[in-house]
């Protein structure tokens, strides 16, 4: 009977969850297309149109020049320790803050570095960590060191500034994942005889781990794309010549946009590879709700 199948299109769409409201997605889709998808595809195509040589000439050049492919290692050597360090810092602080009644003040203080931006933090650190800065002066006055520690224009300056600017983000994410765990679970653990360490190891940490994996990915991607602090606080010609500097030099010193696009693509691939590995490991974990029952 044909009458059975003649349900109006509008109704059939509505049954699948599409109605007038779906149109509200359009601005977001346009936004993504214009600011992300198009530039990405443009860059991808551009990277295969080198100034000279074949289609893959840019990529061949990148992976045959240690001055270029070395930046992958340099950036990873910064971004991975920074991500791990911010996580290791954020976890205990989040555990402490979650128990506090006046979280807001502390959270505000911890979040300020986000609002300052990397350049301002870098400027501040230039003074603070310099040979005449507070940090060295206090240590020298206290007699702990006899000559200033060199923390600027090397690996440590960039590392410190990345930890400072990355921490609030990592901390906030960790705190929100941690707050999502039903406090009754920890209490249940305690009544069953588990001390604080056992409760952390057996209950809280396993439930927090999937969230930490996401936090790790986001923090890592942020740290991997470091640029201002690597230039201002690091040694951009040597130990902190990160991959974004390579892309910058290709684009604005050699005016080779095609090469710069290739570097950007490689940068994206490395980030993607790390994220895929982390998410694959996360896939092996329990990822259900962190609640204790139907509640």
């Amino acid at each position: 009977m044909s009458t059975l199948t003649s349900i109006p299109l509008k109704q059939r769409l509505a049954a699948r969850g599409y109605d007038g409201l779906t149109l509200l997605c359009l601005p977001a889709i346009l936004f993504l297309l214009a600011l992300f998808i198009y530039p990405f595809l443009y860059g991808l195509v551009l990277s295969f149109e080198p100034k000279q040589g074949g289609m893959f000439a840019n990529y061949q050049r990148f992976f045959s020049d240690s001055f270029l492919y070395g930046t992958i290692g340099t950036t990873l050597w910064l971004a991975l320790p920074v991500t791990v360090a911010t996580l290791l810092l954020a976890i205990p602080i989040a555990f402490r803050v979650r128990l506090m009644k006046n979280q807001r003040l502390l959270t505000t203080i911890l979040v300020i570095p986000i609002t300052l931006g990397t350049v301002l933090v870098a400027q501040g650190l230039l003074n603070y960590l310099g040979p005449q800065g507070w940090f060295n002066r206090v240590l020298m006055t206290a007699g702990i060191i006899s000559s200033p520690v060199k923390l600027l224009h090397n690996y440590w300056g960039v590392m410190l500034s990345l930890v400072i600017t990355g921490f609030p983000f990592t901390f906030l994410l960790t705190l929100s994942y941690l707050s999502g765990i039903d406090p009754a679970l920890e209490q249940a653990g305690a009544t069953l005889g588990a001390g604080p360490w056992e409760r952390f190891k057996n209950i809280l940490f396993p439930l927090l781990l999937p969230g930490l994996a996401i936090t790790f990915c986001l923090s890592f991607v942020q740290a991997f794309s470091v640029f201002p602090s690597a230039v201002l606080l690091g040694a951009p010609a040597g130990p902190t010549r990160v991959i974004s500097i390579a892309a910058y030099q290709a684009a604005f010193e050699e005016y080779d946009y095609s090469m710069a696009s290739a570097v950007a693509m490689i940068m994206g691939l490395v980030q993607l590879a790390i994220v895929v590995v982390v998410l694959a490991v996360r896939g092996l974990l329990y990822r259900g709700p962190a609640g204790g029952g139907k509640g």
Binding site: A190, I203, L207, G288, G292
Partner: peptide
């Protein structure tokens, strides 16, 4: 004593089962 030192069994209102 802390709860883990008392050794009492407790059944919670929302059960508080370890979901993982």
């Amino acid at each position: 004593l802390r709860p883990e030192e008392r050794g009492f069994g407790m059944v919670f209102q929302n059960y508080a089962l370890f979901p993982h």
